[in-house]
């Protein structure tokens, strides 16, 4: 299946991956080849077959709506690259 560099750039943006030119080149070729193989699926007739999202039919797994203590927020925040006053810190979101 032919895939263009533009296709790869579009998907990379959706996936939030900034790829180098070399990576784009490799992925254009590799994904094309993999998708070419996967396209064999078209040969299987599945008209009218219901889709399976989960191997077993699940009954709704509901539990009591109760809060409980989790590990202290500080230990979780310690894993963040940047945090301040109990919040995760990110770049400015709103311009201007």
């Amino acid at each position: 299946m032919a895939l263009t560099k533009k296709d790869v750039e579009h998907v990379a943006r959706l996936a939030r991956l900034s790829l180098t030119d070399k990576e784009k080149e490799n992925l254009t070729e590799q994904l094309g080849k993999i998708l070419g193989y996967i396209e064999k699926l078209n040969e299987t007739d599945a008209a009218g077959v219901p889709p399976t999202a989960h191997p077993f039919a699940v009954t709704p797994a509901l539990r009591e709506d109760k809060t409980f203590r989790w590990s202290p927020a500080e230990s979780i925040l310690k894993n963040a690259p940047e945090h301040e006053e109990g919040f995760f810190k990110v770049k400015k979101v709103i311009e201007g």
Partner: peptide, 23 residues
């Protein structure tokens, strides 16, 4: 922020993981 997402992920993930995310 967009660049933070895109570059952190590009620098952090290896080639196979990127391939599967893209796929």
């Amino acid at each position: 922020l967009l660049e933070l997402y895109e570059k952190s992920r590009d620098e952090g993930f290896g080639p196979e993981v990127k391939r599967r995310i893209m796929l």
